[in-house]
Simulated assay, not measured.
Amino acid sequence: MNTVDRWFEDYEVGEERSFVGRTLTETDVVLHAGQTGDFFPHHMDAEWAATQPFGRRIAHGTLVLSIAVGMTAGDINPQAMSYGYDRIRFINPVFIGDTLHVTAAITGKRDHAKEPGRLGYVHELVTVTTAAGGTVLVLTHLYLVNKRVD
Rank of each mutant, 00 (worst) to 15 (best):
R17K: 12
G61Y: 13
F19W: 05
V128A: 03
D98Y: 00
D75C: 13
L139W: 04
W48R: 10
G21P: 02
T62E: 14
F8R: 03
L125T: 09
V128Q: 02
H43E: 04
H42W: 13
G117F: 12
T107K: 14
H123C: 02
A73Q: 14
T27C: 07
H123N: 14
I106S: 06
L31K: 06
P41T: 13
L139M: 14
D28E: 08
T130F: 01
Y83N: 14
E26L: 11
T129C: 08
G55S: 13
T129G: 04
P78A: 10
Q35R: 08
D28R: 01
D75L: 06
N92K: 13
D86F: 07
L119Q: 10
A131G: 10
G70E: 04
T103I: 10
E9S: 10
G70A: 04
A49I: 08
R56H: 05
Q52I: 13
E15S: 11
L139F: 11
M81N: 13
T129D: 09
M71V: 04
F54K: 09
H123I: 08
G70R: 08
G74N: 13
G61T: 07
D150V: 09
A132P: 00
L63P: 01
L24V: 08
V69C: 06
V136H: 00
P93C: 12
H60P: 01
G120Y: 09
G97I: 03
V29Q: 00
G134F: 05
A46R: 11
L139N: 08
R6S: 05
W48Q: 07
R57V: 11
F39L: 09
Y85Q: 05
T135F: 10
G21N: 04
E16N: 10
G133F: 00
F95S: 02
V138Q: 05
L65I: 03
S66L: 03
L142A: 14
G74K: 12
R148G: 05
H32Q: 01
F90W: 11
V136N: 00
T51Q: 15
A68P: 03
V64D: 00
K114E: 12
T99L: 00
L142Y: 11
V145W: 03
V4S: 05
R118D: 15
V30L: 07
Y85A: 02
A68W: 02
D75S: 10
P41G: 04
R56I: 05
H32F: 13
I58M: 03
P41W: 13
Q35C: 13
M44K: 03
E15A: 14
H112M: 12
S66P: 01
G70S: 09
Q52G: 06
V69E: 07
T36G: 04
K147P: 04
H42C: 07
